[in-house]
Write a protein that binds this DNA or RNA. Structure first.
Lengths: 241, 241
DNA sequence: CTAATAGTGTCTATGAGACAATATATG
DNA sequence: CATATATTGTCTCATAGACACTATTAG
């Protein structure tokens, strides 16, 4: 038998269920900002294990429908929030023998950034604020509080040198609102003049000429995300205190 | 039946093989520097599929022996290189329906940095230089050239703002050798005075007082990694040209 | 007018890039 | 001494941080 035929033969007889395999699933930590606090979307589990417990949205790969991992994550996010194209990034995979009572399990974890006003979330979901350690004050299913914490660290770290957080803002926003979002995520105050210089240099937002937001005092210029709303990466980190 | 008993019952009857699951494996891109070029360790596949093809070291999770994903990666690395504690970092997971002829498959990919002199690699392995696009000039099994490229991008990107590459150096080295390593990975020349200021500021290397390396001209001060050889992250990127 | 927030001007501090000067080996 | 590389000094430049000043709105 030729080598090629041997390979064909091997593949014909290959059955994944002849092997011991881990559980593999995809989880998505969905962040937004509500009332100047970072919030995460929690979903109440309908099925065993951990039925009734709160958890971040997640699920198994649909081998028939999902073309790749990213699409699994998009599907999960869409099912829970109705969002079509949010900011979505893989933060890493976590796997060990203990994290799931069913056995050795791996989660490929993503994080997403959404604007709270654009979410029409499923009935089993709710926003929950995260605390200073990047977790929620609530006992969650599996190791989900750790996953949230990891995701938040990534978010905060990226906010220090990029314009990643723009998707949490509404369509139109002021520079002060944008600065407040950064301050919320970074956990400290930023210098106003410096912040403005920095964000304008990135050319990721565009002034809406003639459009202003009424406030109790001086009106503020409105901006929108630029059409080419790619994330900009700075050569230097910003410092919040 | 109580809710707790129902859960126990569910777990007792849970069989992973009742579900359609993807293949899940761990692959490790092992980098070193040989003759001022970044090299990657390739292993010749002994088993189907892609028997006889070159691939990066990888394998399945051993559900009995491996406590977590990181340990799977360490095990794979140790089996191929004899290395006990190299620099190892997860770069991400890649999964889709096409990348493995056996079906939907996920790889959790790590990259490692080793010093070439400390490796005693397995007989089925060899170093292979990577080209400007971060791939090897060779057709590899599965999507392994893409994985190498992703890993190399991560390596280069991290070298711009951290001291991550120290593990590729031998026990004792000169500042010029260290700078050459950085230049090899970054793909450009660095400013000498600036580089020295920067690396010494990080306090990740220690002068070996009285020890010098003979060269054809002036001897050079030897250094070693500091005992606390944690990776240092700079607030600002370095620029190679 | 006052209060409050929006928006700008400018000085300082940090650290990288450029480039040259000096030091020390070999032959 | 010539040459090559190691090592250091110093000037410039970009950008962040500090801080105060001006502008504009409501009441």
């Amino acid at each position: 038998m030729s080598n090629q035929n041997k390979e064909k033969n091997y593949l014909k007889n290959y059955r994944i269920h002849d092997y011991e395999v881990p559980l593999t699933c995809v989880d998505v930590v969905i962040f937004t900002i509500v009332d100047n606090a970072v919030n995460v979307l929690l979903s109440n589990r309908k099925h065993y294990p951990c039925k009734g417990a709160w958890a971040i949205p997640g699920g198994f790969i649909d081998l028939k429908k999902d073309h790749d991992l990213q699409q699994t994550a998009y599907r999960i996010l869409f099912e829970k929030t109705g969002y079509q194209a949010p900011y979505l990034e893989q933060i890493g995979s976590f796997g060990n023998a203990q994290r799931d009572p069913r056995g050795w399990s791996v989660t490929i974890t993503y994080f997403a950034l959404v604007n709270v006003e654009n979410v029409t979330f499923a009935a089993d979901c709710q926003w929950y604020p995260i605390n200073e350690t990047g977790e929620v004050n609530k006992s969650l299913a599996f190791d989900h509080n750790e996953l949230i914490s990891e995701a938040f660290q990534r978010l905060r770290s990226k906010a220090q040198y990029s314009t990643i957080i723009l998707p949490v803002l509404p369509e139109k926003f002021t520079l002060s609102e944008l600065q407040t979002c950064y301050e919320t995520i970074l956990g400290g105050k930023l210098n106003k003049a410096g912040f403005r210089r920095r964000i304008l240099k990135a050319e990721v937002i565009t002034e809406l000429s003639g459009e202003y937001k009424q406030t109790s005092t001086r009106t503020a210029q409105l901006y929108k995300r630029s059409d080419s709303d790619n994330v900009y990466f700075y050569m230097r980190e910003i410092y919040a205190k």
